[in-house]
Design a protein around this nucleic acid. Structure first.
Lengths: 122, 122
DNA sequence: CTGAATGTATCAATATATTAATACACCAGG
DNA sequence: CCTGGTGTATTAATATATTGATACATTCAG
């Protein structure tokens, strides 16, 4: 599994890990049923404490991405379902944050949409 | 001046204050030359400590929105100039953050752009 | 049955962010 | 001159987030 942790980054390691694993599952690079490295294994590889990796796994399990069982290890589940309502809510939140940043920069609508399109495409 | 501080919000008070004042200046509700309430005055009104308001003012001064002088008070400056390069960089950053959130939600391009347009328009 | 490997849970330690308090230096007005 | 109001700077206190360490319970392999 390809994950990179940058301890200098503004995001804490457990959050970087969570995001990256979620992305790997979303994109299909990690398919349902695949077993992830054990907590201690991954912690050792990345130079993190077990608790840090455990936290990332735990949150991913709460979100439905993973399923961990004692003795078995941690396995990828199907990409979690999300109600339309929840997705809309979270999308609106993200869009609102983007809009706030755009306004503070004094960028006009078209430029803002173009920038978003570029990032979404790439 | 109309500002609202919600101590329950995830953003700390000094950041809420900074953002709101910046927005007021951006939108022209606070024009160049207008004198803001004194630090102690505003802190008293909002129920915050002087240091908290001072921090918001200080950061706004660094960004070029305000100009504070001892004895005079704090006054609105012109909307700060920003190089095209810097604006592009920060816009790209914001767009990238939005794109990351969108991908994690599994939303397609058109829906994401529509959501952004809605928030930017409103 | 035994042991090693697994995820889980809990707590202490640390770092960071944020706030609050205090003292300081400066300016305007009377 | 001097008093009250101003922003500035520094420091301590607090809260929060994050990590690290440890003990625990379960599972599988042999």
């Amino acid at each position: 599994m390809i994950v990179e942790i940058d301890v200098e980054a503004p995001l804490p390691p457990y959050e970087q890990l969570r995001t990256q694993i979620a992305a790997l599952i979303r994109t299909g690079e990690l398919k349902e049923g695949v077993r992830l490295p054990s907590i201690r294994q991954l912690a050792g590889d990345l130079g993190l404490a077990s608790g840090t990796v455990a936290r990332a796994y735990r949150e991913l399990e709460s979100a439905g991405y993973l399923r961990g069982r004692v003795g078995h290890g941690t396995v990828v589940r199907a990409i979690p379902e999300m109600t339309d309502k929840e997705r809309d809510t979270r999308l609106a939140e993200a869009a609102r944050a983007y809009a706030t940043a755009v306004r503070e920069l004094g960028v006009d609508l078209d430029a803002a949409l173009l920038a978003a399109r570029r990032q979404l495409a790439g």
